[in-house]
């Protein structure tokens, strides 16, 4: 006699449980070394790599920066960063549109983390999927260039909701495009009242100072072991 019964099992479990577990492990690994970890997210071509270069130049050798570059293909970005003399690891995600926590773990395994104070993870250019995947970062930063249009927070609210900092980039091009900076600020704050917003032109240097001061303050705070839990 085979007995057969139906049962309903309540799970209430995140669909991303395994990714979240790995992200937590990354956070622990970096926290133990008091490394500030920054996850940079944006569309392709909004200026992530250029901004990373400016940060490296600004902090100099004392900055002890390491960079993980995420791209579907090529190591073009890693080559750019390597010229600045910092540790860099290129992840090629192939078919995946974002860096997975497990890929970041493998990248970190190849780095000398004792020589690092700030880890910058430049995610794959995409405003959708990277927003959903935690990488154990202390600070999530979303970039939006003025050439992309001011409706992006309306179209992709999740990334603006989950980021700590919004950087509006390429502000030197504002005279040539219809981009309502105030509308972007308002929309970003609607989904995320606490988001900090900076406006920069990395190529011209406008607005970099307040942003770099902010990063430096976060780095110093982390180094004292008082970073965000």
């Amino acid at each position: 006699m085979i007995s057969c019964a139906e049962m309903k099992v309540p799970l209430d479990r995140s669909i991303q449980q395994s990714a979240e577990d790995t992200a937590r492990a990354i956070r622990g690994l970096l926290a133990a070394r008091k490394i500030l970890s920054i996850n940079l997210i944006s569309s392709p071509g909004s200026g992530k790599t250029t901004l990373v270069e400016k940060m490296i130049e600004s902090f100099g050798e004392t900055g002890r920066i390491a960079v993980v570059e995420g791209d579907i293909e090529t190591d073009i970005d890693a080559q750019r960063i390597r010229k600045h003399g910092v540790q860099v690891c290129q992840i090629n995600t192939r078919s995946s549109c974002h860096i997975q926590p497990a890929q970041l773990v493998r990248a970190l395994e190849g780095m000398d983390l004792d020589a690092v104070d700030v880890l910058i993870v430049e995610n794959v250019g995409n405003l959708v999927c990277p927003a959903e995947v935690p990488l154990g970062e202390d600070v999530r930063v979303v970039l939006l260039s003025v050439t992309e249009g001011d409706e992006k927070p309306l179209k992709y609210p999740l990334v603006f909701k989950t980021s700590d900092i919004l950087i509006i980039t390429k502000t030197d091009l504002l005279p040539y495009v219809a981009f309502d900076t105030e509308a972007v600020r308002r929309a970003a704050r609607t989904v995320n009242p606490g988001i900090e917003i900076f406006e920069v032109s990395a190529t011209r240097g406008d607005g970099l100072e307040p942003l770099l001061s902010k990063i430096e303050a976060l780095r110093a705070e982390k180094a004292r072991g008082k970073g965000r839990a």
Binding site: E6, M7, K8, L11, K161
Partner: peptide, 21 residues
């Protein structure tokens, strides 16, 4: 008015599964 705050809407979870045992 545009003076609003938006909360929630970011769930991504498995609520339950029904099984024949």
């Amino acid at each position: 008015c545009p003076d609003i705050a938006v909360r929630g809407g970011d769930s991504l979870s498995i609520v339950s599964v029904e099984l024949d045992v």
